[in-house]
Design a protein around this nucleic acid. Structure first.
Lengths: 243, 243
DNA sequence: GCAATAGTGTCTTTCAGACACTATATC
DNA sequence: GATATAGTGTCTGAAAGACACTATTGC
């Protein structure tokens, strides 16, 4: 075509960190690889970026066909381009978040039998950073393909960093949720307990939340009120359509 | 070669946001384009990623030959991949920060006559986000090439977000600096005034700083003490070699 | 001494943590 | 009524903003 073709080009892929919170821990969808490279190991769902498709569009396409998923919080995470990261050749990958309520992640997982929902094991505290590992109940520790341990670590680091000032936590919950569930999400991401009254005050004072007047039921004890993100606040949920 | 070659591949470039602080504003190095596309407009220094080179290595290489620069704080920012962003064809760019003291940026600027140091004009507050524009004294507003207005906006957003918990601010100052200079850097990034005693307390309490016992001089008034990052804290300056 | 900024002491306000208390559902 | 959790009132302590004050340089 032109000057662009004077040099060899890398392949560019998208890898998706489909994530939610379950049992007080961050969980992520992993796929068992049945072809080389890294056959038998576990990897993030991903695919190639098409030549006429934006990165965001590629992430959305891969999300919808790998996980039959709409309405997730999708956000670019980081790009990984070590020349040795893929033994097949030069592959640069752009990692994306796809955050969703647990029920959606379960539905995605049920769609194929090479998928599992794995808990994240983060061997560091705070904003420090570093790779993370994954395990599930059926298999125990899951050996990860490529540099996906680093991608998972970066995902946790980013989640922790954005938890306070952004609305990512709500992406991990159903539309209606209790304040305790919201606190559980925060605690799972930060991996440390939070003070209940302080958490409530802080979140309610942000002015993002709206009480629905409805309550959960059938728990055997006092039911908690259900809250939702205020409609005016929800817009910024998908307002990141740049690029 | 193999399956990777079954599909057309994009070109991948690095764009560098060489940035510092001057006169209470963020500034960035821009290069006047003397070839198409966007001939006559101003763009970020950049270059192609070589086929056997990591993204970080490409950023470092481009930094050293465009700006004859060592020792800058280099950090990946975001990847931009709109298929229309380059009229020559499909080009995905991975944007990087290169933060440095103003004197280093000036030296880089003096190395070629198509370079300028432009002030950033950020039309939004806080963490909101959105494109930014640039201008310098010689030319006034500088029309930007490609999607570089978005890259600059993302750079400011990231700087603001990391200012409190990371040590980026120190990357914009010489090794020795006064607390007032440090406060000026914070104010320039946040674009709002900060309280002096509170700022000093907060920064000194972090335990990152060390008084040198030396003082500036020749200002016509009481000289300020010079501080530096504690040697033990400096290490994390270049400790981001993952990927 | 004057000008100008460095650096500090202290009061007030705000907010997080701690803890105990009340409220309300199922059984 | 027992149990378990929801939700709140209030005390305390840590940290930020405000403001004034002292300190130190060149002139």
């Amino acid at each position: 075509m032109n000057e662009l073709d004077n040099y060899p080009k890398p392949s560019v892929t998208i890898d998706l960190v489909l994530s939610s919170v379950s049992n007080g821990a961050l969980v992520v969808l992993l796929q068992k690889r049945n072809i080389a490279p890294f056959k038998g190991k576990w990897g993030l769902p991903g695919g190639f970026v098409k030549i006429d498709e934006s990165l965001d569009a590629a992430a959305a396409r891969i999300l919808s066909y790998k996980a039959r998923m709409k309405d997730a919080w999708v956000e670019q995470l980081y790009s990984f381009g070590n020349p040795q990261r893929d033994p097949r050749g030069r592959v640069i990958t752009v990692a994306y978040f796809a955050l969703m309520p647990l029920e959606d992640l379960r539905r995605a997982c049920a769609a194929a039998d090479d998928l599992t929902i794995a808990s994240l094991d983060v061997p560091w505290q705070g904003e420090e950073g570093g790779p993370a590992s994954a395990s599930d109940e059926a298999h125990g520790p899951l050996p990860l393909a490529f540099d996906h341990d680093e991608i998972l670590g970066m995902a946790v680091q980013r989640l922790r960093g954005k938890l306070d000032y952004s609305k990512i936590a709500f992406a991990l919950l159903p539309k209606h949720f209790t304040l305790r569930e919201l606190q559980d999400v925060h605690e799972a991401i930060l991996k440390r307990p939070l003070n209940k009254p302080a958490f409530r005050r802080r979140l309610l004072d942000k002015g993002w939340l709206e009480a629905t007047g409805e309550y959960e039921s059938g728990k055997g004890f006092r039911p908690a009120e259900l809250y939702r993100l205020q409609p005016s606040q929800t817009s910024s949920f998908q307002d990141r359509k740049r690029r």
